[in-house]
Amino acid sequence: MVRLKSRYLLCEVNVSDRSQLLLLDDRAIMVAVKAAVARTHGDYGAAMCSIRFCVKYLNAHTGIVFLRFPKRCYKLLWSALPFITSIETRGQKIPCFLNCLHVGGTIRTCQKFLIRYNTQQLHRMLPKCKSEEEKQQVRKAILSCSLTESKEAFEEDSESEGEEEEEE
């Protein structure tokens, strides 16, 4: 048995105003990526993008997106991603850009990376906390993220990070 190989791109949606992130949904990102690929690589790109491309996961709190591309042409499709300048969702145009953090062969490696990355973000956030209570919360969040309780921790971790950022 040979499986169909894919590449998973772990991207971060960067916006100037973080509250706009909550407006995002899978569909909007999919449309934006497809449009960018069609603009940059024409019909060939659009055809490549229609095969096995999908948005696997979206965390609207932290702006993390998983994109799946077929392995044979992921570089071509990836090279169109920097040309995304805005995502249109619910009648609004959100100016943003995608920053690729990691490229993995399986969702699991991406998830491992994401947990590490989110821990790092929490560490960066720690000195910015204003009150002692916030600090305690961030510390607890850092301790709670580990790979053994992967799925739950993963959810918890990203959730709590989203909350922290809103508080700031």
């Binding site: 990836w78 090279s79 995608l98 920053n99 690729c100």
Partner: peptide, 16 residues
């Protein structure tokens, strides 16, 4: 700020 791109994206963009 929104015109900046991440280093890995830039590297891949350079393929073009």
């Amino acid at each position: 700020a929104l015109e900046l791109r991440g280093p890995y994206d830039v590297t891949n963009l350079a393929l073009l």
